[in-house]
């Protein structure tokens, strides 16, 4: 099909190796601050790329990623905490039985986080996909809030508002970047397969999708469940990066941030979700300098805390004005395009 297929696979492998080399370099030479930002970027890539699968690719405006991230974070944290640690943490009510004695390795806890979140997504999907459009957004928003409220009130499972503390800091750059690469690879493959094509068909015209024999209900379920799986893993990584989680971490604000990322990057574009995650996380940190007092030579500006959010909002508004479909629109990065731009190899189609 693609005349440049072999070259592109080679370039993809080389590209991945380059990313891994950067990870290795950053891990050994980077400051703790830089490593933290890279970790955040990688985790946001996991969450944004999977969020984009349901919102951008399938066109179902879900507002529930905070529910899956929360569930994933709690699941994996509860699984890696040792019984002794749980006994110390749960001071108001003791942890319920199976959770109080289980301890698993990090990898197992991450996978469990994914599976449990995917299960929640699957079950949630039954009522959610009876609705469409605005109603679907509101229903999912409700579910997101419900999960947070449950986390706040099930003292013996989540330790309520006190949250979980002392979670081992397992999330290294290798874990987070590895998860990001696997997520991008798998979701990218899925989107390019005929299942992804069917999901896009649902987004563009649901009635026509039915007419070509696509079971729209199950394809939405598939997108939602897959997205839930990876968001759960993102949550698990997040919990083991910041080591303390509480329900306040998983409010609508988290959903909102992810939404900004995928809209800024371009709804429906995996490349866009990656770019969005990088710009959002790194940009947010880079802009910190505007919070500090500045001396422009002729005028002294006192530091205004929160100024960076104002500037960040302005940037977002500009993006929405000048690139209404986000940075990438629905386009994806591909090697053919890059090679054409660089004017090397590759015959034009």
């Amino acid at each position: 099909m693609d005349i440049n297929h072999k070259r592109n696979v080679l370039l993809s492998v080389l590209g991945t190796m380059l990313v891994l080399a950067v990870v290795q370099l950053a891990g050994s030479h980077g400051t703790e601050y830089q490593i933290r930002i890279l970790n955040n970027i990688a985790i946001f890539i996991v969450m944004a790329v999977s969020y984009n699968l349901i919102n951008g690719v399938t066109g179902q405006f879900s507002l529930a990623p905070n529910a899956f991230v929360a569930l994933g974070a709690y699941t994996s944290a509860l699984l890696t905490l040792t019984p002794a640690e749980k006994e110390i943490s749960f001071i108001i009510e003791p942890c319920i039985w199976p959770l109080s004695v289980i301890t698993t390795p990090f990898l197992v806890s991450l996978l469990a986080a994914g599976v449990v979140s995917a299960l929640l997504a699957f079950v949630m999907g039954f009522p959610v996909f009876r609705t469409r459009g605005d109603y679907l957004a509101i229903v999912t928003l409700g579910f997101g809030e419900v999960v947070r409220v449950i986390a706040n009130n099930t003292q013996s499972i989540t330790n309520g508002p006190l949250g979980l503390k002392g979670i081992a800091e397992h999330t290294t750059l290798w874990w987070s970047c590895g998860a990001a690469i696997v997520t991008v690879f798998l979701i990218g493959r899925m989107v390019r397969s005929s299942y992804g094509m069917a999901m896009k068909a649902i987004k563009y015209d649901e009635a026509a999708a039915e007419a070509v024999g696509i079971n729209t209900y199950w394809h939405k379920m598939l997108a939602f469940t897959t997205s839930g799986f990876f968001q759960g893993i993102g949550g698990g990584l997040l919990a083991h990066l910041i080591t303390t989680i509480s329900p306040t971490l998983f409010t609508f604000f988290l959903t909102f941030n992810l939404l900004i990322i995928i809209v800024m990057g371009g709804l429906g574009s995996t490349t866009g979700a990656i770019l969005g995650a990088i710009l959002f996380t790194w940009g947010g940190e880079w802009l910190r300098f505007v919070d500090e007092p500045m001396n422009l030579g002729f005028v002294e500006i006192p530091g205004i805390p929160g100024m960076r959010m104002v500037i960040f909002s302005c940037i977002l508004i500009f993006i929405m004005i000048f690139a209404r479909h986000g940075i990438m629109g629905t386009r994806e990065f591909n090697w053919n395009w890059l090679c054409r731009k660089l004017g090397i190899g590759g015959r034009a189609r």
């Binding site: 899925m190 005929s194 069917a198 896009k200 015209d205 026509a208 070509v212 024999g213 696509i214 897959t226």
Partner: peptide, 24 residues
């Protein structure tokens, strides 16, 4: 009612999707 942002050939390929035996 075509799928606007899919290419011409993808619009036809999608018709075969309902008979696909592969799982996701």
């Amino acid at each position: 009612r075509l799928f606007s942002e899919l290419s011409v050939i993808e619009n036809v390929m999608i018709g075969y999707h309902c008979r696909l035996r592969s799982t996701f």
